[in-house]
């Protein structure tokens, strides 16, 4: 009951934000729409019993990444001339068609699933920080530690690339 009542509006927010991102000519507006979409998505995550991920979604995505985006947009200081005008080219047509086709196909796939009902009962602490943490620092230790390398690489890479001179 509550799940449905929350899900559909939030889904709408997520989709709407995403579409808004596509539709807005100004990238800053786009970024804002995207943040909106992320909030919607995070809410759905909560519905999916993934509180930690929902929190991370807000913190990392809406908080860090999008700020970074906006920061970059501001840094680059684009003016009105740089705003693109929507055009119809073979590329856009094919691209849009591909996206649409994909979505259609996905319907086919998902409707084919044998078990459509979500379990109502979930294990204790499912999606909670503690249990996810135990998982990540336990069995997932190898990929997790690799992620640390990944982040280090990203840092070094970003510095190398963004430094003004070599």
């Amino acid at each position: 009951m509550t799940e449905a009542m929350l899900f559909y509006p939030m889904a709408l927010v997520a989709i709407g934000g995403a579409l808004g991102m596509i539709a807005s000519r100004n990238p800053v507006h786009g970024a804002m729409y995207l943040v909106l979409s992320f909030f919607g998505i995070a809410s759905v995550y909560v519905l999916l019993a993934a509180e930690l991920i929902a929190a991370l979604q807000i913190i990392v995505y809406a908080g860090a990444i999008m700020v970074l985006f906006v920061f970059v947009i501001m840094l680059l200081n684009l003016n009105e001339d740089d705003l693109e005008r929507p055009r119809l080219t073979p590329g856009t047509i094919f691209g849009g068609a591909a996206a649409l086709a994909f979505w259609m196909i996905s319907f086919m796939v998902f409707s084919d699933l044998p078990d459509q009902t979500m379990p109502t009962e979930l294990p204790e602490g499912f999606g909670q920080v503690a249990s996810v943490g135990r998982l990540i620092f336990g069995p997932f230790i190898v990929p997790f530690e690799s992620t640390s390398i990944l982040l280090l690489v990203a840092m070094v890479g970003a510095i190398v690339v963004a430094k003004p001179r070599i």
């Binding site: 009951m1 799940e3 596509i22 849009g96 996206a99 979505w103 996905s106 319907f107 699933l113 979500m118």
Partner: peptide
């Protein structure tokens, strides 16, 4: 009351499609 799995997945694929686009 409960939302079928397919709807969540469809939301995911919708987002994917929009990102795609």
């Amino acid at each position: 009351g409960s939302v079928p799995l397919a709807h969540y997945l469809a939301l995911g694929s919708a987002l994917f499609a929009v990102g795609f686009a």
